[in-house]
Write a protein that binds this DNA or RNA. Structure first.
Lengths: 161, 161
DNA sequence: GATGTCGTCATACTTTCGCATGATTTTGCG
DNA sequence: CGCAAAATCATGCGAAAGTATGACGACATC
């Protein structure tokens, strides 16, 4: 896809150069500048459309995907839900390396569970501003700009279940 | 879609007319004809690309046949990482039962990936308002009041990875 | 006792979200 | 073709969320 852009640039440059070179020969002599502009416009518009088609071409295929949903039927002992039952332990090492405090993580967990700042504040008996502060610090440490992003990062890093 | 072509033509004509009108004023006076050509070229290329992307927006119709295959599991090898390797297929049944459209789910997935409405709008070549509308409908169908909640519900219901 | 971290809170402001509502367009389908 | 479902977009508004900055007390530690 990057190649297309490159080609685009190259051909564009070539075209301009060519036109620039030849304009004094026969283009401008016979016709006016508007024809020249229109020519360039049409060519580039067509090229742009072609480019747009090209880089998004393969997507409108009507695919028929066969999804094999394998239903696990336990033979005798279930026991694979152990990991689900476990209370989940956040990656403390990761947490420490990012400098995320316990409180921040606590609030982050509540954010991840879909609570609003106000709801979190009520649950923890603190002011909404405090929640915002913790959030802001946590977001900063996680390199997130939004709570959804922060939650995503938190899960990726093993900080959240 | 026909309107786009019309707009294209109109704006193109206008642009050319404008340039044609103003060229003798300040464009050509200061700069040469190649700058004029380059300007037209860039503008039209951008417009063309936009148009190309716009009218060939991914229309991914996925018809999938769900084959439920019961597999006997030896009761100790749970193999839970299979779900991570699989490209992930949202629970279409769940989606249908909730009346969530493909577009809504698509946007929901981007929300889950931490993008803002504006970013999503840019990615999908639609207006921010449209994204908001899709979001609102999806949230409503999911019974969520916030995007974090919606993401949570979506994952619970097998709609999101 | 100075230093540093953490938690708490506030104020002021900007940006983003979400809701309601209505309108137009596009599209899939019988 | 015509209809219904989707998708698109707009506007206006209030509520959240997020940013920046400063402050203050508790507590641990050196």
């Amino acid at each position: 896809m990057k190649r297309h852009v490159l080609i685009f640039g190259l051909v564009g440059g070539l075209l301009i150069a060519t036109l620039q070179y030849t304009e004094y020969r026969f283009v401008v002599i016979e016709h006016s500048i508007e024809l020249y502009g229109a020519l360039v416009a049409v060519l580039f518009a067509a090229f742009g459309i072609w480019l747009g088609l090209r880089i998004t071409r393969r997507r409108e295929i009507v695919r028929e995907r066969v999804v094999v949903r394998e239903v696990l039927v336990p033979a005798e002992a279930p026991a694979p839900l152990a990991t689900d039952t476990v209370p989940f332990a956040p990656d403390r090492a990761q947490q420490r390396s990012l400098g995320i405090t316990a409180r921040e993580l606590e609030i982050l967990a509540l954010v991840a569970r879909g609570f609003s700042n106000r709801e979190i504040a009520t649950q923890l008996f603190v002011s909404e501003n405090t929640v915002k502060t913790h959030c802001a610090r946590a977001f900063d440490k996680l390199g997130a700009a939004r709570r959804t992003q922060a939650v995503l990062r938190g899960k990726e890093l093993g900080l959240l279940p």
